[in-house]
Design a protein around this nucleic acid. Structure first.
Lengths: 339, 339
DNA sequence: GCTTATGGTGTGTTCGTTCACGCAGAGCGT
DNA sequence: ACGCTCTGCGTGAACGAACACACCATAAGC
């Protein structure tokens, strides 16, 4: 800045006002300084800048379903968030997470509002209740850095989405069963009585693959309100009635619970939650798919942090790759997560 | 620091001398100040610290085989290195890469020596010529941050290794063929006349799996000096002579070159190099394994950067997970790499 | 009793930015 | 001519740490 000021024949203060668009500078000088900045390829010194900013800690808010007592998917996401928070802590980025009851749209909206009005400079939110969240989001300052994760929500506002392609995941599950089973043997798709977009899309992808190769898909309906024993018994009964069935796809993380009932059939499911790991290790599950939920949380926070610190633009979309996990490469994936 | 000085009843200068172990402080004060530092949980302000340090740019050197005209494995590693370099550039970390002719151990040693004496504060090296490199490394200052990648080199010195488990990769390849082929059908393992540790280990892993399930492995020997046409013809002839063969494992990135010859058989190979992508997309390859070479380069530089910036300890080992890539999840993996 | 080293300490400047403040002069109305 | 506001600009004090330097003791050596 000193050099720029010298070349432009003005003071540092004037340069500063131009760089920060704070006005009170003549049009002449604005043009001259901008030209010099451009020509010199001036980049502000991050360290000086942040030091001077009064030790202002950049703060990021995360709004997501409660993960405290959860050992599943949201816990994995939370782990990634925490890892990113640790990584950016020495750069004075503070991450605060607010959880809400996932069955209460109002709690979701309330959590978002609290966060947004609480002085955060960037927010990552899992917009699982789009109806109530959309108006809130669209009314908010359009330049405010906002990242959606887990679920994408159509809305008239620029934001970044970090997430998965559930349809493709189901399709891949179909392919894996297809590759490992003789044609002609039907496969089972477990369908839960839950209104969940991911589940729906995964199932569609799975059926799409089966259709494309002409394999029969049997639907096994499951009520989530039924106790586990009951569901297992139903499953065993179902399989006994359809002995030709070669494999089974459980489109969510609960696949481990079905591993015993499906014994002898190829089993494909989702997510590296503790309950599934043992089943995979012992060969009761064959494939687990994972959309790297830790990476999802990690990336959401990381991108926001870098946007705030370095002014990096948020990409429109970050899609996470589909991992195919077998007993034989499980440990490598677990190592990766825990570092 | 001001607060610490106040509480200890000394000046800031004294606190500074204690924190930096620069002596010239009475034992009393050292103890008192350390206690207060401990109790306050004092962490130095990175921004002030780096600003004050004379804008000293931390510099990191990378020593690896030349990747300029290479579109393969080393190019992927290099991409990861460059990505990390871009990421840490605003934190004033400078990364310089020196390539050497991979067939010349002397060039490798020379490159390392140049780097080490050139004022770097941390080095990442691919120690593919361990015989010549070991004495150099062991003679070097033991506290100097050092990361090995690609190949691990046993040596009497603390360092961090970022890399893969090639044996496990071969084992996984065996499992994938095993899952998708009827028992009884033999599989082919391509063996190259190259003294490469990774190739060797992958092949061992592959054979170990086959042995564990009693599947026959046929060896197809290939001379790398032969022109591609010749090798393809040999392969076709070999397969014609063994019509029962169900699948083929090429334990390196050249699998794409064999895809045509092996048509109709399951093909498993390594690495997301451009030559393999088309073959996978068109269904001539079934599985590609990847040890995330970009992540390898990225992590090597990233860990060194964080060690220098934040004083984070280098872990002994970072193992990269084995990715199983099919046509159906290829795009997600490519997206991940190019961000 | 004198210098000369050396252990222990405080002071002051520097790093590059940020931003509150102050000051001059122009424009306006009374 | 006076006070007022408003624009355009420079000045100077932070921010927190690093480090050279000056200083005063005391001890050692002659």
């Amino acid at each position: 800045m000193k050099e720029i000021a010298r070349r432009a024949g003005v003071s540092i203060g004037t340069v500063d006002r131009v760089l920060h668009h704070r006005g009170r500078v003549s049009a002449d000088n604005i043009a001259k300084i901008n030209a010099i900045v451009e020509q010199m390829g001036y980049k502000p010194n991050l360290f000086a800048s942040r030091l001077s900013g009064g030790g202002l800690v950049r703060s990021i808010g995360v709004v997501m379903p409660e993960a405290a007592q959860d050992f599943g998917y949201w816990r994995l996401i939370r782990n990634g968030i925490d890892r990113a928070a640790r990584e950016f802590e020495p750069l004075q980025v503070a991450v605060q997470v607010v959880g809400f009851d996932r069955n209460s749209p109002d709690a979701c909206a309330e959590a978002f509002r609290r966060m947004a009005e609480g002085g955060c400079e960037g927010i990552a939110v899992a917009p699982i209740h789009s109806r109530i969240l959309r108006p809130l989001v669209e009314a908010w300052d359009p330049s405010f850095p906002l990242v959606f994760f887990d679920t994408d929500m159509a809305c008239d506002r620029h934001r970044c989405f970090v997430g998965q392609d559930p349809w493709q995941g189901g399709y891949l599950a179909g392919k894996l069963l297809g590759l490992t089973l003789e044609t002609g043997r039907p496969v089972v798709l477990v369908r839960f009585d839950e209104d969940d977009e991911h589940l729906q899309k995964r199932s569609e992808g799975f059926e799409a693959y089966a259709r494309s190769v002409g394999r029969q898909v049997l639907i096994l309906a499951q009520k989530l309100s039924d106790p586990l024993d009951r569901r297992r018994a139903d499953t065993a009964l179902f399989l006994a009635r359809h002995p030709a069935v070669g494999g089974m796809f459980v489109p969510n993380a609960s696949v481990g619970e079905y591993a015993l009932a499906g014994l002898g059939r190829r089993m494909v499911g989702y997510d590296l939650i503790p309950g599934n790991l043992a089943a995979l290790r012992e060969g009761r599950l064959d494939f687990l798919l994972s959309q790297r939920p830790e990476v999802m949380g990690y990336e959401a926070v990381r991108r926001l942090s870098r946007a705030l610190l370095f002014g990096e633009a948020l990409p429109d979309r970050i899609s996470l790759p589909l991992d195919v996990i077998l007993k034989e490469n499980l440990d490598g994936h677990l190592d990766q997560i825990n570092s």
